[in-house]
Design a protein around this nucleic acid. Structure first.
Lengths: 343, 343
DNA sequence: GTGAAAGCGCTAACAA
DNA sequence: TTGTTAGCGCTTTCAC
């Protein structure tokens, strides 16, 4: 643990190099302000001494941490992996690093993380909002965050901030159009929690597109629950129990779809022969299901990168409004959807 | 953007409360050093002014960032999600936050992150090593990290540091024993990159247990490749092309197993009737495959928590050796493995 | 129990 | 082009 021998500071380097601390600082941050000779010399000493600037001091001095806080409700969700990567890639290309936090849908954790932002542990926040925080009543979001800027990764009507989200209306619509094209007219929908904007929109888009074709989802075909495998399994039981089951189901995410794929056949409905199943998200394993799952691919990496870019633009002053950009998803047709049987 | 009105500092609070800055600082960090009266008064002013300490200053002054850096080679891998959560949970309970970095198996990125550690962006490092960094030749790992402590989450013979890893020898052994118990004697193994310690060990454990039963994997049954679905698909082709295919396959992770599950039936071998498949990792979707995948469950969350605990112990001085703890996995029997057919 | 004051290591005016 | 110097906001001796 060579942690004892105190690390060299600008002063050490300055003394060693026979220049002032300012020169050392400049050599590192604005090299072109120095005579090439001096620069080379200082840099050599820097290397010789193994000097590394102490970011704690830099941060205090500049007021910048070059750190982005990323908040999601469940870091455990594989869904976010690519999203993080997109953020990380762009952020790092701009010299920022990531503080990733999991709020677990818990108001206290959320507050804690907001507190860290206020305490300048990060310069800005990338937030995948699920629910509007309760504390928001007591002030604006900017107060909560200590004035640090925020970019939302989900739409939220009660928070006024730049937003970079997936175009879920379009996603839902894509599913409807695909299924209609195949000839389906009898549908079921297994929804997630509709109070979440991103869920609501895939629902709205789906149903709007159906409505335009003169079709509606019957009441008993409107199922839903949490965004998990079990919801799909439960839905499969409900669907197979119906007198005239739908010929196509739209699951609000791939986990639900997997639950369907897994349970429907066991309960007597083959996919896609008897019933088509379309998922949403296009998780990595969607294409390895049996049958391969038709899904809506969300460009999660691009999404993360766009959000990071937006936040950094705000931080660096080149973005001042509160734009809302919606990233279009992409439809992935696979084996789990097919034309309905003729009967 | 209420970012203009400069935030209150200890001085502001001190003036407002009619005490010294020292007293304000104490009120926040060591309340019991103050007369209850003073304390209450200061705290009231703190609340009134909305004061929040500036962590940048605290860090510089104390030399502590209360931040843990976590480095993995691919943040995109769903495998890490639960691992992160375990780290986050424990870390946060101890007042630490997480800086998560993705090295992309890239030496430069790795160096960059090490540099940030040296620059005190974090107090310590939790590292899921894949390969020993090339730069290690030029000095000890402690130098590279600026003297900050490190806990490895994978064994690495060339780096001497406390390690908290999964007991992969045991995992591999569990698979062999399960399959032997079922009556299998003809095996194939689809391995990952054996240069990784965690992969090597599941291989070693598996083969050692087979050897003890007097069985070996024939040469043409020793397959392998990257830890992805495609490797499983390719292996399925090789296996089905064999004159006498094995009755059981051990896939080094679930992705490979999924590739097998997906491709074997298409090529004429039913799972588990003709051939048993056992995966490794027990990813969330393993139990939703058709057939449900028998796998080795890695307690990833517990693993992360244990690693975080170890690192914080080192940081706070209560752990000084270089212990190596191996966390035992758990066997999950499901549908994809069954006794071999009698023939 | 409380205050005064000395920095932590760095950057950025301002001077020279 | 380079140096001097004043802090950034906080914690922590050391006095009182």
């Amino acid at each position: 643990m060579a942690t004892k021998p105190k690390r060299p500071t600008v002063h050490d380097v300055a003394r060693e190099a026979g220049v002032s601390v300012a020169t050392v600082s400049r050599a590192l941050s604005r090299p072109k302000d120095l005579k090439k000779e001096t620069l080379d010399h200082v840099l050599k000493v820097v290397r010789a001494t193994g000097y590394r600037s102490n970011q704690m001091a830099v941060q205090l001095r500049t007021g910048l941490s070059r750190t982005l806080m990323v908040l999601v409700s469940d870091i455990t969700n594989a869904f976010y992996a690519e999203f993080f990567k997109g953020i990380e890639d762009y952020a790092r290309s701009r010299g920022y690093i990531l503080l990733i936090g999991d709020t677990s849908q818990d108001a206290q954790s959320e507050q804690d993380y907001f507190g860290m932002l206020s305490a300048n542990k990060a310069d800005g926040l990338l937030w995948n909002v699920d629910a509007t925080p309760a504390e928001l009543g007591q002030g604006t979001i900017a107060d909560l965050l200590g004035g640090h800027p925020l970019v939302l990764c989900n739409h939220n009507t009660e928070i006024d901030a730049p937003t970079v989200r997936i175009d879920n209306d379009l996603g839902g619509r894509m599913v409807a159009e695909h299924l209609l094209d195949l000839g389906h007219r009898a549908f079921a929908e297994v929804a997630g929690p509709l109070e979440h904007d991103s869920i609501r929109r895939r629902h709205d888009g789906f149903n709007a597109a159906l409505a335009e074709a003169g079709v509606t989802v019957p009441t008993d075909g409107q199922l839903g629950g949490a965004l998990g495998i079990e919801t799909g399994q439960a839905a499969a039981r409900q669907i197979t129990a119906m007198e005239t089951p739908p010929t196509a189901v739209f699951a609000h995410n791939d986990a639900i779809a997997i639950g369907l794929l897994h349970s429907l056949p066991k309960l007597g409905l083959r996919v896609p022969d008897d019933i088509s199943v379309v998922g949403y998200d296009d998780m990595p394993y969607a294409c390895a299901m049996t049958p391969e799952l038709t899904s809506v691919r969300l460009p999660r990496r691009r999404w993360g990168a766009a959000a990071a870019k937006m936040l950094i633009s705000v931080l660096e002053g080149s973005e001042t409004g509160t734009p809302e950009v919606a990233i279009p998803p992409e439809f992935k047709r696979r084996e789990s959807s097919a034309p309905p049987r003729q009967n």
